[in-house]
């Protein structure tokens, strides 16, 4: 009896967690403007989405394009910075290392709204004109710690002598980095990149405060504005479903990679 209750509780919890997502996914296959009305199965919303045949369709697609581009650039820069930072932190000793790891963790726990507002104030203070660049910079700021967190364990697993072994065999420090260190750290860097990409993808608060007034919209700010205008554009339903699936796939990939790393 106890077991049944425990199981029931678990399934109920999972159902509650995933119900909204399922709800949106199901209703992405009907044409009704109002969410919750089933007017028969249709893939029209999907085709609208991809052909832009809807109200304000071009701005929605532009927002998607911005979101992806910002996520890609931010994740790429974060991966580079985070890897270099991880190597630096790994080579510190004792207290300094602990302090740096602690400092690396703060931005991850810090509420987005605080990160957003403080970056906004910083950019204003420095006199940066806000727009695309500031959004990318802001995203790099909160994505980098995740890369650091993914690369550090790889460094710990690595035989500390292999960098020296490369030097010993005639590789310059640069060659040793590219031919030995990077291949060894690559799995951690890729996991870090994927995580940074997803973090950037769903960010709202930080983007909202750092995008300035030039009308830059990412998906999250677009939806926010759209919702305020009254009612969500129905084409958002298929879009949400697609994004959810992409993120789900990415998460599965990360988990499988981590399993593989553990087995080694």
């Amino acid at each position: 009896m106890k077991k049944v209750l425990a199981k029931a509780y678990l399934y109920l919890l999972l159902a509650m967690l995933y119900a909204p997502l399922l709800f949106i996914a199901v209703f992405s296959f009907t044409e009704s403007r109002v969410l919750g009305n089933w007017t028969g199965f249709s893939t029209k919303l999907y085709s609208n989405l991809f052909t832009g045949g809807m109200n304000g369709g071009s701005s929605l697609l532009a927002a998607v394009e911005n979101t992806l581009l910002i996520a890609l650039i931010a994740a790429a820069i974060s991966t580079l910075l985070g890897t270099v930072a991880a190597v630096g932190i790994f080579n510190l000793k004792g207290r300094k290392k602990q302090t740096m790891q602690f400092l690396n963790n703060i931005p991850m726990i810090n509420p987005d709204i605080i990160t957003g507002v403080s970056l906004f104030l910083l950019f204003v203070f420095l006199g940066f004109s806000q727009g695309y660049t500031t959004v990318v910079l802001a995203h790099v700021t909160f994505c980098t710690p995740y890369v650091v967190l993914n690369v550090l364990p790889k460094l710990a697993q690595m035989n500390p002598n292999i960098y020296e072994a490369a030097l010993d065999l005639g590789a310059t420090p640069g060659q040793a980095l590219w031919k030995v260190l990077v291949p060894e750290l690559r799995p951690g860097m890729i996991s870090g990149f994927i995580l940074a990409f997803t973090m950037s993808l769903d960010d709202f608060a930080v983007t909202f405060f750092t995008r300035g007034t030039i009308g830059l919209e990412t998906l999250s700010t677009y939806i926010y504005a759209d919702a305020r205008k009254g009612g969500l554009t129905p084409e958002l339903r298929p879009l949400m479903t697609i994004i959810f699936l992409i993120v789900l796939i990415l998460l599965i990939v990360i988990n499988m990679r981590q399993e593989k790393m553990k087995k080694q």
Partner: peptide, 17 residues
């Protein structure tokens, strides 16, 4: 080290995995 005509066999081999 990379310009010295010497080579080392390391304690834990340090092969490139």
């Amino acid at each position: 080290p990379y310009k010295r005509p010497l080579n080392t066999v390391f304690q834990r081999y340090a092969l490139f995995p």
